[in-house]
Nucleic acid binder design. Structure first.
Length: 764
DNA sequence: CAGTGAGCGAGCTTCCGCTTGACTT
């Protein structure tokens, strides 16, 4: 005992390694970083050449105590933190804090947790790479400087407790820029001309297929002319080209791709995916879930090959090694995969099983053969015209990896080009059954989901696997962005139809752009973004991180001093901070909408002390100005004069119920209705306080009454204030507006009055 | 619990990237 101490970052990893190393090795975990910059002031001594002031956070003191004891007992200490910038820094902090003797200390790394990899690592130790440590210090110090100097500017100029940072501010900018692009988007329309053609083969067998005209006319008249021409044209098949096509499987999951697929297929939020994956990892079901690597260990490759061959035959197996293309990837781990590939399914909670299944399929399919197709494209001439109809079909010849898994895509897939075409030959005549010209509108880029934002950040090299979920939660906590559903807008489009030689015209209405769980910027988010972009342009640029990463790489290569790099950044940055604090005005986002038709006064919107508001009149006027808050979903950037004026109609009377009037208004906690001095919240994303009618209001009142009744499990005659209620975590006691937990071992259905009172008095 | 919008002004807030628990009214 005590011969060797191995320190890794994660306790689950420590457990696994314990199985591979013998009794002579004690494995302990550092639980990530053990030191960080002090939170007092900057935590950096600028005068002393940016010397970092490191402290051990309160919640790490116990860990450090234990590691100190273990290391002083050990003969050799093996620092086995991850092989990346952060891991190297952890190793260095450990050696400093534990005061390790270099003679007794070995730095080792392994990318996969297999016996071979660990044995190899033990046989090939090295010393701590100080250049890499310095690159990490530069990263840490830069982030602290940016975060702790920018945030106070916002406290002074916008409102307290806001934040800004290298990563979060750019994440917000992505969402703001996208929203503005959507607002500014001008849809253009064109006509897709799609025919259903009938082909008759030599035996008289008829079959129908779809083909689309090679051009899309912009004007309805043009589309109509083409249809008119088609009504007595002759259609001849010209080119028939068949060629084989193949499709390869996607690589196994990284953090980012796992989050994307779990969001699309299982509807999980990014945070939910990570917490479920964490459980799977801790239970030894999957490899580490915070990774940017698509690499697989040799043992995993061999196991996959065996599973695939046994299940579907050897020709379904194809061993592949994937290479990471992601910017800034540090590849300290394997891809995310099942630890034991032969475990097709596991016993766990339903969501754990579903996520495991996804990970299993993705990993297995990545080691399977390509799917083979035959793709056929056909051209159909229209007599006397240059345009052609095009048809394409795809036949699956060999399913390969598709047997298990196919990656989903965000965009709508084209409905053309799927399925089988009839056996067409050059020179065949085909007859149109009907031809439609359908008006189609171009769409702006879609709003981000949590997962698609992560994808974008990863592409830009911003953030790391361990921070994607926290970034999204931070910018929501600061109220820079909101995750919301929004109803779509109705739009009308035209269909011209050629059937039986006659052309008919019809207009149809559809809803477009309904959003579910999408990320929208708030007014404060846009205001802060614009302020930062104006005064700190460089930091808000999408390639800022990529640029500083290049500097960090130079530090890691030993080509520049980290303090020099920081100094070069800090001087102009700090000056900018000071100048902005001194000279810039408080941004309000004010926008003049027009004049109030009643009073003739100016109507404006801006961010007030309590959020976005409309104002009629000005502060200096003889009458005080009138104010109203904007509703959720409204924005100072897009609200119209009419919408703004409508807000002054609240509170208003909606109607009557049970002989008393119903009033609708907007309060501290959002829109409400009041009836017999009881308040009811309006249903989110459903009711609009400006338009809600009496019937809907009555429904809300009745539903709330029902809900209260269902929530009550038990009442007591002894004391009407005492109730047993059904809550989020099961039954609980409510007494005089206080809640009490029911201790384990007591049956909530049969708990009597005395027992309740005992629990209550005990708590007090 | 169901607005407010203002000229006195304490002391607080904040970054990014490694890691898990503890425990919910």
């Amino acid at each position: 005992m005590g011969e060797n101490l191995v320190i890794v970052e994660s306790p689950a990893k420590a457990r696994t390694i314990g199985n591979f190393l013998g009794k002579d090795y004690l494995i302990k975990s550092s639980y990530g970083h053990i030191r960080d910059l002090s939170k007092e002031n900057l935590g950096i001594n600028i005068q002393k050449n940016f010397t970092p002031e490191y402290v051990i956070p309160e919640d790490k003191k116990q860990v450090v105590r234990e590691l100190k004891k273990a290391s002083s007992d050990a003969r050799i200490i093996w620092l086995a933190s991850d092989e990346d910038r952060e891991g190297e820094a952890i190793a260095w902090h450990l050696s400093e804090v534990l005061d390790l003797d270099p003679e007794k200390t070995r730095r080792i790394v392994f990318h996969e947790i297999t016996k071979d990899a660990i044995d190899y690592a033990i046989k090939n130790p090295r010393s701590i790479n100080n250049n890499l440590v310095n690159a990490q210090q530069a990263r840490r110090v830069l982030d602290r400087l940016v975060g702790f100097e920018l945030s106070p500017v916002l406290w002074k100029k916008v409102r307290p407790a806001l934040s800004a940072g290298r990563v979060q501010s750019v994440a917000v900018k992505l969402i703001v820029d996208r929203e503005r692009a959507i607002n500014a988007f001008q849809p253009e329309s064109s006509y897709r001309i799609i025919g259903i053609f009938i082909h008759t083969d030599p035996d008289g067998q008829q079959s129908a297929f779809r083909a689309e005209l090679s051009v899309r006319p912009e004007k309805k008249e043009e589309a109509r002319k083409i249809l008119e021409y088609c009504s007595d044209a002759i259609f001849t098949v010209t080119d028939v080209i068949s060629k084989p096509a193949r499709k390869s499987p996607a690589p196994p999951f990284t953090t980012s791709t796992l989050q994307q697929e779990a969001s699309r297929r299982l509807g999980f939020s990014v945070a939910q995916t990570m917490s479920i994956a964490q459980k799977l990892y801790e239970n030894g079901r999957i490899t580490y879930m915070r990774t940017d690597s698509v690499n697989l260990s040799k043992t995993a490759l061999a196991a996959a090959k065996q599973v695939i061959s046994e299940e579907w035959g050897e020709y379904y197996s194809k061993t592949r090694n994937f290479k990471t293309k992601t910017k800034g990837a540090q590849e300290a781990h394997e891809a995310i995969r099942p630890t034991y590939i032969e475990n097709r399914s596991i016993t766990a909670t339903r969501n754990e099983q579903r996520l495991y299944d996804l990970i299993w399929k993705r990993m297995i399919s990545s080691q399977m053969s390509e799917a083979l197709f035959e793709k056929t494209t056909v051209k159909i001439d229209i007599s006397g015209r240059n345009e052609q109809f095009l048809a394409s079909g795809e036949v699956l010849k060999f399913d390969g990896f598709l047997k298990v898994y196919s990656e989903t895509v965000d965009s709508e897939t084209d409905e053309n080009g799927k399925g089988l075409l009839p056996p067409l030959k050059t020179g065949d005549k085909v007859i149109p059954e009907n031809i439609d010209a359908i008006q189609k509108f171009t769409n702006p880029s879609p709003r981000y989901t949590e997962a698609s934002l992560v994808k974008k950040l990863e592409e830009l090299g911003i953030g790391r696997p361990s921070t994607y979920a926290p970034i999204i939660s931070t910018i929501q906590k600061r109220e820079y962005i909101v995750k919301q559903d929004r109803p779509g807008k109705k739009y009308t489009y035209i269909i011209l139809s050629l059937t039986g030689g006659e052309i008919s015209e019809e207009s149809k209405t559809e809803t477009y752009g309904a959003e579910k769980n999408k990320l929208f910027p708030t007014d404060i988010g846009m205001l802060v973004n614009d302020f930062l972009v104006e005064h700190f342009t460089e930091i808000l640029e999408y390639n800022f991180t990529a640029d500083v990463e290049k500097e960090f790489d130079k530090i890691a290569a030993g080509n520049i001093e980290w303090t020099q790099m920081i100094e070069k950044f800090y001087k102009p940055f700090h000056e900018r901070v000071q100048r902005t604090t001194k000279v810039s005005k408080k941004p309000t986002g004010e926008r003049i909408l027009g004049n109030d038709p009643q009073s003739g006064k100016t109507v404006s919107v801006k961010i007030g002390k309590f959020g976005p508001m409309v104002q009629i009149g000005n502060a200096g006027d003889t009458d005080k100005p009138r104010f109203a808050s904007l509703l959720k979903g409204q924005s100072i950037e897009t609200i119209s004069l009419e919408e703004a004026l409508a807000l002054f109609k609240l509170p208003r009377k909606v109607g009557e119920f049970e002989g008393s009037e119903i009033i609708v208004g907007v309060g501290k906690f959002g829109p409400y209705i009041r009836h017999k001095s009881v308040f009811y919240s309006l249903r989110r994303n459903q009711d609009d306080p400006l338009t809600i009618e009496n019937q809907a209001a009555i429904e809300i009142i009745k539903a709330k009454r029902d809900q209260i009744q269902n929530k009550t499990i038990r009442k007591y005659t002894e004391d009407p204030d005492l109730q047993i209620l059904k809550g989020r975590w099961g039954p609980y006691i409510r007494y005089n507006k206080q809640n009490y937990k029911i201790p384990k071992g007591i049956d909530p259905d049969s708990i009597d009055y005395e027992a309740c009172m005992r629990i209550i008095s005990k708590k007090k």
